[in-house]
Design a protein around this nucleic acid. Sequence first.
RNA 1: GCUUCCUUCGUCUAGUGGCCUAGGACGCUGGCCUCUCACGCCGGAAACAUGGGUUCGAGUCCCGUAGGAAGUACCA
Length: 555
Amino acid sequence: MDYKKLADLLFPDVKYTKEDLEKKYPPRNLKPGAIVTRFAPSPTGFLHIGSVFTCLVANNIAKKSDGVFILRIEDTDQTRKVENGVKNIIQGLNRYDIKFDEGVDEEGNDYGDYGTYTQSQRKDIYMAMAKYLVSEGKAYPCFCDDETAERDKAIQEANKELTGYYGSYAHCRDLTLEEVEANLKQGKKFAIRLKCNSSADHKIVMEDAIRGTLKLSDNFNDVVILKRDFLPPYNFAHACDDHFMRVNLVLRGDEYIPSIAEHLQIFDALGFERIKYAHIAPIQKMEGASKRKISKRKDPEANVTFYLEEGYPVESVKEYLYTVANSNFEDWRKNNPDLTCDNFVVTADKMSKSGALFDLPKLNDVSKNIISTFDAQKVYDLCLAWAELYDKSFAKILKDNKDYAIKVFSIERGTAKPRKDIAKWNETKSAFGYFFKELFAPKSLEDYAYNLEKFDKETIKKIVDKYVGVYDNEPDNQTWFAKIKTLGTEFGFADDMKAYKANPEAYKGHYGDVASMLRVAITGKANTPDLYQICTLLGKDEVVSRLKLASELLK
RNA sequence: GCUUCCUUCGUCUAGUGGCCUAGGACGCUGGCCUCUCACGCCGGAAACAUGGGUUCGAGUCCCGUAGGAAGUACCA
């Protein structure tokens, strides 16, 4: 069979030869050890938290090795394309400080020397390489239609045979030149399949950067490398693109592990040097008693917009993702409390082989720590930015009371032991809302967090009433506290903790209990920062009027 | 069904044949500190899926079983 002739017949006008392309996209001149990798999303517009995770890792590995990080758009499945899909993905990633060295910008324009970076525009390359394979006798045109494929699959299933296009089911594998010509004349469309020379019982061994040695069954299928629309499926695009973009580490989800054998066959047929792989386990989620991949349909937290809406700072999400990526991150953090998390160096072989469960409580803990390191101005700015998108009325209050709000956020901040009371901005209102007159409006006893099991409301009312009479703008914390202690003793509360602990029966409670009652009376809440500072900020008039209101509602 | 991967406290994990009486973090919990709430500090409960090997010795190596996950497309 004259394969050259066949190739020319199939692809009469192809722009490049393999040599042209090798020359056009020469090996990169990078320092040894530099990693060239890429993120290759479909432009569906949906940014999955797992994608951010993978990207964060890929970006880190590329940048730390003085390598290159590429954004490639995989849009060969034209049916899944979405308006603004690329833009949404880029913007989403930018928020997490993920920037590409080469790729496509928000408008869809290329930058970098190894483009174009949009697969649907790389048709010439795929066709050239497909033609090359045909001319080498390594690939052939397949004229089978979908019905044939379905029928064969049904037969194979009924016979309990392996499903696929192989052996006697590879109808077009041995077509003669004349038969191909005849089909072409009839206007029959064709796809290109790779001639496979292996079988399922042949095992292959490969080294994965995360998994270590992987033993897999070889591919036995004559896989499609060019679809009827002459666009490649993932497998062929992956080989051509990653080779000609001179990628040297493929980081991708572990759902690709079963198709590694197929990919390796394609690389070999093409005469490309094999590339290193790192297969990342997906982030999982608990459903009932079993784990499953976090799903874009069922789980709101799969979408990055979830973190935006809840008001998690990007630093928090990144910090958390790094803890999932490499467990030694937390040790690193302990030793480098002041560095930003992007200074950490991710190592592929320290990544987990099994999928990590997304742990929201852990994220919250991480986030509380992160926010506790922010200064008041930053808290204000970020909280306001969040509120302007998701809580307009709160945003207005923050803007109308800017200086006051910053004072509120300053309480016990910037100290050696900063407060850790918020994990995300949507908690700010409930944590600090009572500072603002607009947001403090208790209507009944239920709006107060009194511990009525410990103390009855008559006791509380007596104390509140008494305090209204004695409260003043105290000059300092000590004076303020002394007053509370003295007041407590009048009602049988201890003013000395040790004395109380030594003999709790002798007292009704201790000064802490008194402070707690007043705290609730003034703020409505049981957990707040230093009450003295709160009262100072609120001012005497407001404190007194709140105490009176509390007294009223305690009746 | 077939193929492949994975399996250590509730969760994330450390662990590369003796340092493991299995370490850390989150969560839960007891206490201490304290000028109130927190923070912080100290402590506690809590795990090697299972059965066989190999070995003087196994969480670690091998085989089987179970469970979970993924793939099985002219999707990616």
